[in-house]
Write a protein that binds this DNA or RNA. Sequence first.
RNA 1: GGGCGCGUGGUCUAGCGGUUAUGACGUCACCCUGACACGGUGAAGGUCGCCAGUUCAAAUCUGGCCGCGCCCA
Length: 940
Amino acid sequence: MERLRRHAPGARDRRFPPAPRSGPGPGDDGARGGRGARRDRPGRPREGRPLSATALPPRFEPGPIEARWQEAWQRLGTFRAPDRPSAPPFALILPPPNVTGILTIGHMLGDTVMDVLVRRQRARGRAALWLPGTDHAGLSTQVEVRRRLQKEGVDFGALPREEAVARVQAWKDEHEPRIREQIRAGGFSVDWSRYRYTLDPASARATRVAFVALFDAGLLYRGERMVNWDPRLETAISDLEVVHREEETELLYVRYPWADGSPGGIEVATVRPETIFGDVAVAVHPDDERHRAEVGRSVRVPIVDRIVPVITDPSVDPEFGAGALKITPRHDPVDREIFLRHPDLAEPDEIFDPRARLLGPGVPAELRGLGREEARKRTTERLAADGLLLRRERHRHSVARSERSDAVIEPRLSTQWFVRMRPLAEPVEQAVRRGEIRIWPERWRRTFDRWMEELQDWCISRQIVWGHPVPVDYCRACGRTIASVERPTECPGCHGRELAADPDVLDTWFTSWLWPFAALGWPEPTADLARYYPTSVLVTGRDIMFFWVARMMMAGYRFAGARPFSDVYLTGMVRDAEERRMSKHLGNSPDPIAVIRERGADAMRFALVFPNPTDDDGPFGTASLDGGRNFLTKLWNLVRFTVGHLPDGLAPPRAPPSLGPGSLLENRWILARYHRTAGSVDEALEAFQVTRAATDLHGFVWHDLADRYVEIAKEALAGRRGEPARRETEATLAFVLERTLRLLAPFVPHVTEELWHALPHDGELLATAPWPSAAEVAPDPSAETAIAPVLEAIRLFRNLRAEEEVPLDASPAAWIRPAGDDGARLLAAESATIVRLARLGRLELLTPDAPAPPGSASRVAPEAECYLERPATSPRKVDALARERERLASLLAKARSRLGDDGFRHRAPPQVVEEAEAKARELEERIGRIDRHLEEAAKA
RNA sequence: GGGCGCGUGGUCUAGCGGUUAUGACGUCACCCUGACACGGUGAAGGUCGCCAGUUCAAAUCUGGCCGCGCCCA
């Protein structure tokens, strides 16, 4: 008590210069609200002791703390990567989010993982660069702007190109600050001085250079191919932007009558009757007996009466429908393939316009201009009216939709630019096979490999305005295709001056895939590129593994001549309370800014990495946020307690306290536990196991440090175990806590920074403090072993108290019978601790042959037998002991049956047999003791 | 249709040949204890999806089945 008073005010006065605390803010006195009212209830006067015993306010308020440190880090340039690093670099790029989008909690997960990795490496002395950026997200941004303008009554499609671009640009300018603010608010240690944007001039140059290089290498081609056409957005999209979903539709059985007028015809099953106008043939399987006689005959296409042949093709599935397939080569990829295998078939007419409305000479006039839905309905009606509709069936099948607009994809022949992927893929496949690029968690390797094997060419041209133009001109005179970095003024072939620029823009990913080097300055030979490429690790969501990660690898080898990163860490998807993936699309992600404002960035960050694994899909919600907040509050109070109990001017812990044989067991133990924790955190983070590291730290802080160590150490800190013990304990606590804050800093940087400044420490900022080495402390397994019986005794006495309903304010007498001499010495030495933590009146050691103290309840541990004086009112029951006996008996039965098995005795390793025997002996012995206790209890 | 992955107390999860199966949340009981009720102490709760097999020994390895998810067509 006296000591507390002596030291606490001093502690309150301690200010470390770099702490930009601006004095107690609102709420700092903590004596408000329900809790304060309860605490100050009558009968418990609080006068006479310092209200706030520490430099830290009683209540943890993240808001002001986070704002203050973010500002300080920014002002001091803490996260600015060195221009001339003297240390080995550790670089990573922030996957550039959509510049006009809102970050989701999923982004925060990836960002937190990255921050943990990069802050640790920075602390380990690496030249750390975390490069932030944003993506122009061509299609999705244009779609968004188009939708907004539509609400204002402006038809985006009708705007001149320049104006359309200007509109999107305005939208981007308006939104860019918001996304930057979101990244900032999370406390992520990015280097803002290197911020890049995928549509800035340097990115434009990189994009053009890459395009021209591929073009010159013959890896680009332009041609009329079947592409995924989004009729709502009126552009081609890549395979990856298409999502397949099972949907219920109607399967129609239609009769195609014989051309020669003979009765009957061939029965064709289709889900797309409206494409009938594009039919060029009906195909059956060559081995299909049912149709053998029909091959070579001709049929009339219903409604239009065009005459087409019946052909054979092995790709027809004889099981589907009636085994006959109508062939519409312009609107189905499979049909296209079949068509190309039959050169004698007539070239089909186009039957849809770019919005997928029926069009063209082959379409009956009354159906022209109809959308697909309506066209299908009307065609079906016509077929029925003509008596050609044989039957209709419900049918589930996979429907391709545009990821962006949700429109049903119309496979369509159109002229587009493509990248030949096969040659680009090879170095990547090798790199992954050789382990030059590692994928974490490893289980995604297979998925990755398989996708690489089946790689399709990549359609990169888009019929939109927002993006980098395809850097190609066409000579009007000679028709030459000119791809060049600078726009040409004349045709290099015929010197014609009339050039037409390609009207399309490039897929956004065509810029993004260059990002690891383009963001560092490529194609210019910049200093950053030389120093920070290849980057170290890429962290991103699994959902863009193919879109982005795989393509970056290809681009890295192709353009930068090296892997873009050595490791890929794929995070899981964050789910909402209903288990749905959080996505911008669903709008079910809370705004990170709101979460941060309400709970703090640190709480959010911790909730994202603990307890659900960062590489698995998992829920995020108030429960996890509460967990994060609770942990931070625990930490806060732990430091607050510590600060209040350390003497003024205690030297910063430059080295662990040197503990000798006379040292307190708890001090040796907590150092040993710290050593173990620091080691396992390192091990976990080296293997990208962020959650394991967080879990270890959480358990260490809460259970070892707070629940056990501090509770035991209170006695020494209060000076009741002598001056040397107090000094040793102070030094140990100060050391362990300071190091623990450094280990926690990458996860929860703000609160740890704040707390660190309240403790004795070296250096200006926790954010730049070195990463602690576990090796600084020697392992001490004997301390860990020695403390176990003490903790177990405390647990059993507490257990007995609860069991026997001992009132809280009672201090019953207790007895303990140690199992051996070592145990006796140890328990004698630590008996004060046991007495205090179990709230005992006194604790006597019993000799092995001493009788059970009368009127006592007992429990039996391997190392000791514990007896507790029963209160007069105690319920007379021995359930716990009896239940324990039962449990041990079943274990013993299992152990005995194993030992009775000859196979086990002969084939198991001797060590295992010995262990089993020892265990059985121990169990027998313990059961024997329990039986004795039960007898005694029965007698009493 | 093809491929990949996952099933562990009510929920989420660790463990991945020999452990008395880990932890978090939730539940129950007692408690405002000189850091913390966003807390403390104690307790209850699991035949590790099912069935075979391999093995002296299976939550852990193999096969089949069931259920769920993801990717690709």
